[in-house]
Computed example of a mutant assay.
Amino acid sequence: MTSSDRQAARKRDDGERVRRFQALALPHLDAAYNLARWLSGNSADAEDIVQEAFMRALRFFDSFEGDSARPWLLAIVRRTWYSEWRRRASSHEVVQFDEELDDTPIDGWGTAPEDPQTLMIREQDTRLVHEALAELPVEFREVLILRELEDLSYREIAAVTELPIGTVMSRIARARRKFAAIVTSREPQRRAEHVRTTDGQQERPDGM
């Protein structure tokens, strides 16, 4: 095989590798952006994080094993964000992310029973959910996003966050309770806004 033949074969292999990566990773682009957006707190940082994460994912694509690239890709998004978070924390720009949050692991793993906090998350309107999630410490926010909005299993969340499954379950339970407390505290304001809106509609002249 000549040098030009080897180069052509290498290009074909690289092209096939990129096509396979795109086929497996691109369907999860929205999930990657959503996670980055909730972790970073703004869209500009989220776009940078996702771009960097996808570049890293392509670079290390040969190490990927399994059928679903989603948890693997989200783990890279999280690590990419976490690297930037630590850099900013060292500059005192943000509060330090507590990777070793004191969670009491739940023995065993699998599907936890539904609880009132879980139902509350799913029944609230989008605006209130987003406001409450934004108030959560990021350690709790990320697991709730992955579980309730991205619908990942406990096993997948453990893979993304690199935490034991028991710790993941415990952290999600605590996150749900904190979320419920925030929503409950906002209920009086929400009811008052609803009353003002309703009263305003009733006072409109006919035909308006």
Rank of each mutant, 00 (worst) to 15 (best):
W109I: 03
D206R: 05
I172H: 02
E162A: 11
L35E: 05
R59Q: 12
G207T: 08
G207P: 11
S153V: 05
R12A: 15
G166F: 02
G15H: 10
K178F: 06
T2Y: 10
R155F: 08
R127E: 15
R87A: 15
A159G: 06
T197F: 01
R17D: 03
T104M: 10
E100V: 09
T104C: 09
F21N: 00
D102M: 12
S63M: 07
D14Y: 02
D48V: 12
P113C: 00
S170N: 04
R78F: 15
G200W: 01
R12W: 01
R122P: 06
H92D: 15
D98S: 11
R20Y: 01
T197S: 10
R37L: 15
G200N: 07
E139G: 08
K178Q: 14
A32T: 02
E135K: 11
L128T: 13
N42Y: 05
E142H: 11
R88P: 00
H130D: 15
G110F: 05
W81G: 12
I145Y: 04
W72N: 01
A8S: 12
W81A: 07
D45P: 09
T197V: 00
A180M: 12
N42H: 09
E135A: 09
G200Y: 01
W109C: 03
A46E: 11
L152P: 00
D48I: 09
A134F: 14
E52A: 15
P188L: 07
R78D: 14
D103Y: 08
A132M: 10
T126I: 11
N34G: 04
A53D: 05
A44W: 06
E99Y: 10
T111F: 05
P27M: 03
D206V: 10
G166K: 03
V143G: 04
L163D: 06
R79F: 08
V183C: 04
A36N: 02
P188G: 11
Q22M: 06
R20S: 08
R191Q: 12
A181T: 12
L73M: 10
G166L: 07
E114N: 05
P188Y: 04
